[in-house]
Design a binder for these strands. Structure first.
Lengths: 123, 123
DNA sequence: GTAGTTTGATTACGTCTGTAATCGTAATGA
DNA sequence: TCATTACGATTACAGACGTAATCAAACTAC
């Protein structure tokens, strides 16, 4: 088993990043939008534990799950992988694609410019 | 079979986007950096044809392959999917992650700012 | 204390992906 | 013309993934 977090598993992680620890029942409840049975969600939790990105503690007869890795770590990894895979590491190409594809609001544009300015100055 | 282009298949597409039509042998030659046998590359070409993202014309006993979909289309799709999947559509979060993770050169920063300015004005 | 319920563990199964090998047929070379 | 080669088509097979069902143990309700 690779220890990469799959698409579905990622959605489970999002729940745990938002709040943890949670029992499997809690996680299921927070994923009702998805048409997953509780069996399916439990499978994902199991795989996440095997992949060592989620831990659990025993609470009587049930487990309470918590993420081991932080959200920003996973986002970073996935982002780097995506950048390399799809854009061969060319960040200009990547940003150009996103900026042109999304209609960005003025507020978003300002925010991003601020981000770039900050980046330009602090090194 | 889903018609999504997998990671390996994507690399084959890159070759065809760079130059086409190409015979399978040509494609194999242009992928020597990868440790794929010509069998493997041929499998990928076959799958890409089945997924209807690559077409071929017969040239005597061999096929000449060409991409059906354009690179920017695929990049767009993959980018949107990634944005939704990993960042729930929050482009500010996405760009912040990329900008903070990569050390961007001054040139890149200038380019990106120019991009944002252009975007701010033309609508 | 015996039957149901809850919950985690194990097993299942089809599809996709990575990675080929084999088969059939056409071309080529001796 | 007979063996070899080159190529596409078909088949293979293990691991990952989506999606769950079943099993076993513990707990709950009579």
């Amino acid at each position: 088993m690779s220890n990469r977090v799959s698409e579905s598993e990622h959605k489970v992680m999002e729940v745990l990043w938002q709040e943890s620890p949670l029992s499997s029942g809690d996680v299921v409840a927070r994923l009702q939008q998805h048409d997953w049975t509780e069996k399916t969600v439990k499978s994902f939790l199991n795989r996440l534990v095997k992949k060592q990105v989620v831990s659990f503690t025993q609470d009587g007869r049930r487990y309470l799950y918590s993420p081991i890795v932080e959200r920003h770590e996973v986002l970073s990894e996935e982002s780097s992988g995506f950048l390399e895979r799809v854009f061969k590491g060319d960040i200009k190409q990547l940003l150009a694609t996103f900026v042109q594809n999304k209609q960005l609001s003025q507020e978003e544009l300002d925010y991003l410019k601020g981000l770039l300015d900050k980046e330009a100055n602090h090194d």
